[in-house]
Amino acid sequence: MITRENYELFYMDYLEGDLDPALVAELESFLALHPDLRVEDDFLEALEAPEISYTNKSALKFESLPAFDQMSNEDKIIAYHEGILTESQCKTVEQLIATSKGLQTSFDHYQQVYLKPATFTYTHKGKLKRRSTIILWPALMAVAASLTMLFLFNNDISQPEIQHAVLVKEKDSTPIQNTKVEEEELPVLSVKEENGLEKKDINGTKDKNTSVNTNIAPSKTDSLVKNKVIPKITIPQEQNLAEQGIKNGIAQVQTTDPKSNTSTPNVQEGSNSTTSKAMNTSRQNGTYLENALPPLVDYALTKVSKKTGNKPLEIQKEENKPLFKGKFKIKIGSLELKKN
């Protein structure tokens, strides 16, 4: 049954002549009852596609150029200038243009439609370039080593009480013994009265100037405290330490093993509290100098003495600088440690 909802389906077939003849009468009856649904007679004519043609079809075709013999004269001339002809084909073209003025003109014209490369300079090449990603292991290792050294030095420097190393000036030549140190060991440098004592310098030559002997326990904290061995620096009693070697910029440091009584460079690491205790102890026993050894010197003595055997140590102070502050230099044989 044809209704207002489905009539379009029948109506389109009717207009196109495809409607079942059995339904034609029914559709016409329906349209008679519903004249508002009837379309104009030219309804289908309006739907007819206009004649539109694409004129540039040749541009879309990808036809290969014909063989040379089938080429137009114009194409032969172009092919000649393109340089794609054989030698014999070129001669053919040359003969061809020689016979016709028009072809000669065309030949000349085509000769002029070639672009000459203009020089262009791109000025931002630097922005386009890339850098290689290279891992510089040696450099990284060097940085790591530097940081390690820095840490070690800072570790020493960061112990403020170490700066209170002590030089003890003893009233007699007896090394400090049985001094009660409750905590840990201390690198105490005792200054010993030794008038007339000969001093050995680095080169082993004898000198009657200041002789500084350090008597430092060979073991660490416990042995230093329990064995009651105090490291010492011995100088002549009447000579002021500051006015002697240290003031003059050079102090000869010679360590002495108390047991073997032989000179061995051996510097014991000290700790903060021990230093304070030892300062007090040394105050009780004689004169002293605070800040006698900066921590860096202390560290250097500790580290390098292990590798130098019995070679004496030389501590050299920079001239015109406060004692044990600022720049200093340590020489052990050919080895030199300098702090700026």
């Binding site: 541009a59 290969s64 150029l65 092919a79 200038h81 794609i84 014209h109 439609v113």
Partner: peptide, 20 residues
């Protein structure tokens, strides 16, 4: 493909000549 390029260049040469 190379044939297409050749055709394009031939056409371009003709167009350039015609323009000039």
């Amino acid at each position: 493909n190379a044939s297409q390029v050749k055709v394009y260049i031939f056409r371009a040469r003709k167009s350039l000549k015609a323009y000039l």
